[in-house]
Design a protein around this nucleic acid. Structure first.
Length: 825
RNA sequence: GCCGAAGUGGCGAAACUGGUAGACGCGACGGUCUCAAACACCGUUGCCCUUAACGGGCGUGCCGGUUCGAGUCCGGCCUUCGGCACCA
């Protein structure tokens, strides 16, 4: 990365300019001044109660890392800020808050590495972030700042947990969970990426532990259905649909011979049920111990132990393996005996943790059958099937064979018929299965919100009474994770030992802390209500400001924060705390900035700080450059190669204003100039609403290029240019606004309006084609009659040369765009 | 493997519902200014052929199709990025 420091303002040029009574644009001389003025005059604060046209403009609050804001954050926040600034100029009372998602493994791991206590570390980081955000020139309402590690905030995170608990949506249960051996804590499924820890990329193992879960699966159907109407970027909706993973099928069971038990399983292919030649249970399946025959016990025990020790990645990549349990089940449809195996390709957490194996029609079962020499029976015939053995599993639909009364039916009809039969027998039922699983929220770490639960020998699990919140996170010297299922807080006796709120006897506190995503699942509800100490959010303010009008953030949270916060909002709605069930009216995903093709991160050593650019070019130039150099929703590879172009543009705008100030008298605004003015306003206004900031800036560049050609400038041209630019470059426009003696602040002015009629071109260029090839371009008045334009087109010498002697068989006319002569031959 | 997005000059990128491909900017080249340089400003800049001038051909990842006309629509590939991944 090379920074080009340019001397725009050398000693010589300065003195020359002074003679001309012209000044030079020097960002460093104006930015601090206006930042102070904005703070003194509170222009970005909102009267939350009196606001007439409330508009909640939200950006994703960041994790305040020690490295400070990087260029990717700046890119994201600038776009959101521009949007908020335009809305404000359009007459809305824009509320644009900011905060810090400062609990969590990331902060804690860093604190461990640096050997600084997170309480100290985070405070410093937050201060640094706040300063950098202020320098960026955002219109944040700083009086509503939120910090998830502040007891005044997490008190209400605990309150939220208690409400969920009372509602039966939070429960502690034993389950196989994802364990990160490096972070030494459990993780939610959403935090496991391809079998690895989201934070440190260590391969995940599984443990059976008593853990707290939030029952997000109760809301699976609603979370899915609401996606049909919320106004969100399609990418995110798709990601959520896939994650929820709804599938319809049949749940049924095969009785186990010689016991009263049966194996329950789910299948999306009831049409293949006659092809079952064995069954497979997950090694962790509850029935394994019960049904294993004595002669198979050693083999089974050994296999189970080995499977449990493997990482998720190993279990996925390894060859299919399994062991026979010695037990048999009976297929009720054909009364066949089928052997029951265990195998680690069947996952305990998917469906019922057991499958009917149909090797002929499932690739995984096919491989398994081949390996252990189990029978493969075709029951769904491919269209070209001659009755022989299959070389590989046939997984598509077909015609049923070897399936008794269902022979000859098509797959879909057969599925339907088989489900009906099992339903009427009472041995099966239609079921909807989801891929989504409950949200695991316990963490065996220190740096998080304590779970407000107390265990009493007599009273059992007891909630901390709401008036005793918050359960404060104690300062402990040794906050290192223990590596066992115990959290560091378990070692802090003064924290653990308490009394039971119900019976008063000695009791123990829960020592796990909450997943950070619980903290962030409701922060947008807190922002408008930061003034309240006695409740998480006020009803009136919440009704007035929520749901969020515009939320801009990264796609990386598609199935984490964005799914969790929808769930929490729905649950609070159902408990009567909120009148709405979707938190964000509109969500737009911005792109990700990368550097040299790699994601920006400290570990890659490719952090680019905005500070260097603040110093070399000013915050305005950085903002405008980031917005100009590509699409906001796509992001891309960051390079500062073109920053000089944007810098030049801002200098030109400055010089234009200076020229205007120095000019004598004022010219008439010609009709043509008037039209260009309206056209520019229209382009910028429309592109902003679609977050196409790059083309906005291009339009303003074109406009200023045009103004530069003028002998003299009209006041409306100068004013409009400053106003249009104001959301993008707030400092320099404030300065220029003052320089033309307008009232403070430019950011409180009305957004320029355009007249659609005036924005239209009067003269248009019409392409004249012969057989689809453009041969000439002619000028015509906009809205001309077809006959007139065609006549004009025919007169063109170039067109005539191409027409030659050929006969025109067809003439296409597209008003104001083109004429196409189609000739014969 | 499945789902999603995208492939356009030397580079970042534009292009409304199928209608002048390359706006805007970077870089490069030429010029003005300067003792000189930097800055600034003016001009040229998709590729190829050709001309004194005019002109002509090709061109939006590849192959094909629809259409008077395709960057845009359809079919089939290739590549890149993102997401999910033994989901039964």
């Amino acid at each position: 990365m090379t920074l080009a420091f340019q001397a725009h303002h050398t000693e010589t040029s300065e003195s020359q300019e002074t003679e001309d009574r012209m000044s030079r644009y020097e960002p460093s001389k104006i930015e601090a001044k206006w930042r102070e003025r904005w703070a003194e005059t509170n222009i970005y604060e909102v009267d939350m109660r009196a606001a007439k046209r409330p508009f909640y403009n939200l950006m994703m609050f960041p994790y305040p890392s020690a490295e400070g804001l990087h260029i990717g954050n700046v890119f994201a926040f600038t776009g959101a800020d521009i949007y908020g600034r335009v809305k404000a100029m359009q007459g809305h009372d824009v509320f644009e808050p900011f905060g810090y998602d400062a609990f969590g493994i990331h902060s804690e791991n860093f604190a461990l590495k640096q050997n600084i206590h997170p309480m100290t570390l985070i405070r410093d980081n937050v201060n640094n972030f706040r300063e950098q955000m202020k320098r960026l020139g955002t219109r944040i309402a700083w009086s509503h700042e939120v910090d998830t590690t502040d007891p005044a905030y997490y008190r209400w995170t605990q309150w939220l947990f208690l409400q969920l608990y009372k509602q039966g949506l939070a429960e502690k249960r034993s389950a196989p969970v994802n364990w990160c051996p490096s972070c030494k804590t459990v993780l939610a499924d959403e935090q496991v990426i391809a079998g690895k820890c989201e934070r440190c990329s260590t391969e995940i193992t599984h443990r059976d532990l008593e853990q707290w879960f939030l029952k997000i699966t109760d809301y699976a159907e609603r979370l899915l259905n609401n996606l049909n109407w919320i106004d969100w970027s399609p990418v995110i909706k798709t990601a959520q649909r896939n994650w929820i993973g709804r599938s319809e099928g049949l749940q049924t069971r095969f009785a186990i011979e010689g016991t009263s038990e049966s194996v329950t399983f789910f299948t999306t292919r009831p049409d293949t049920i006659f092809g079952v030649t064995f069954m497979v249970l997950a090694p962790e399946h509850a029935l394994v111990d019960q049904i294993t025959t004595p002669d198979q016990k050693d083999a089974v025990d050994k296999y189970v132990t080995e499977a449990m020790a493997k990482t998720a990645v190993d279990r996925q990549q390894a060859e299919r393996t399994g062991v026979f349990t010695g037990a048999y089940a009976r297929n009720p449809l054909n009364n066949e005996r089928v052997p029951i195996w265990i195998g680690d390709y069947v996952l305990a957490t998917v469906g019922t943790g057991a499958i009917m194996a149909v090797p002929a029609h499932d690739t995984r079962d096919f491989d398994f059958a081949r390996k252990y020499d189990l029978p493969i029976r075709v029951v769904v015939a491919p269209s070209d099937w001659s009755g022989g053995e299959l070389a590989e599993a046939y997984t598509d639909a077909g015609t049923l064979v070897n399936s008794g009364e269902f022979d000859g039916m098509a797959s879909q009809d057969a599925s339907e018929a088989i489900v009906k039969k099992l339903e009427s027998d009472g041995t099966g039922e239609r079921t909807v299965a989801y891929r989504l699983r409950d949200w695991l929220i316990s963490r065996q770490r220190y740096w998080g919100t304590p779970i407000p639960i107390i265990y009493c020998d007599d009273c059992g699990t007891v909630t901390v009474p709401e008036d005793q919140l918050p359960v404060e996170l104690p300062y402990v010297e040794n906050f290192r994770p223990t590596g066992t299922a115990q959290a560091p807080l378990a070692l802090a006796d003064s924290f653990v030992n308490t009394t039971c709120p119900e019976c008063g006897k000695p009791a123990r506190r829960e020592t796990d802390v909450l997943d950070t995503f619980v903290d962030s699942s409701w922060y947008f509800l807190r922002y408008p209500s930061t003034e309240f100490d006695e409740r998480p959010f006020g009803r009136e303010l919440t009704e007035k400001w929520l749901p969020v009008d515009n939320y801009i953030g990264g796609k990386e949270h598609a199935v984490l924060h964005l799914l969790y916060s929808r769930f929490i909002t729905m649950a609070l709605h159902d408990m009567g705390h909120l009148s709405f069930e979707e938190p964000y009216k509109r969500f737009r995903a911005h792109g990700v900035l990368v550097l040299g093709g790699a994601k920006i991160s400290k570990s890659r050593g490719n952090i680019v700080s905005p500070d260097d650019y603040y110093a070399s070019h000013g915050a305005d130039t950085l903002r405008a450059y980031l917005m100009f150099s590509g699409r906001y929703d796509e992001g891309g590879d960051f390079s500062d190669k073109g920053i000089e172009g944007v810098s030049r543009f801002l200098h030109r705008v400055w010089d234009l204003v200076e020229r205007y100030r120095g000019q004598e008298g004022e010219p008439q605004l010609t009709d043509e100039a008037e039209r260009l003015l309206h056209r520019t306003i229209k382009r910028v206004t429309q592109d902003i609403s679609n977050l196409k900031f790059n083309t906005c800036i291009a339009a303003m560049m074109e406009y200023s290029n045009e103004l530069q050609q003028r002998e003299a400038l009209h006041v409306r041209e100068i004013e409009t240019l400053i106003l249009l630019l104001a959301p993008f470059t707030p400092y320099v426009t404030e300065e220029l606004w003052a320089r033309i003696d307008r009232t403070y602040s430019v950011h409180q002015q009305a957004w320029p309006a355009f007249d659609n009629e005036l924005a239209k071109l009067q003269e248009v260029e019409v392409a004249v084609q012969v057989n689809g090839k453009t041969r000439d371009i002619i000028e015509a008045a906009a809205g001309s009659e077809e006959a007139a334009v065609v006549a004009l087109a025919k007169q063109s010498e170039r067109v005539q040369r191409h027409l030659g002697q050929s006969e025109v068989v067809k003439t296409i006319y597209v008003p104001d765009r083109l004429v196409n002569f189609v000739t014969k031959g």
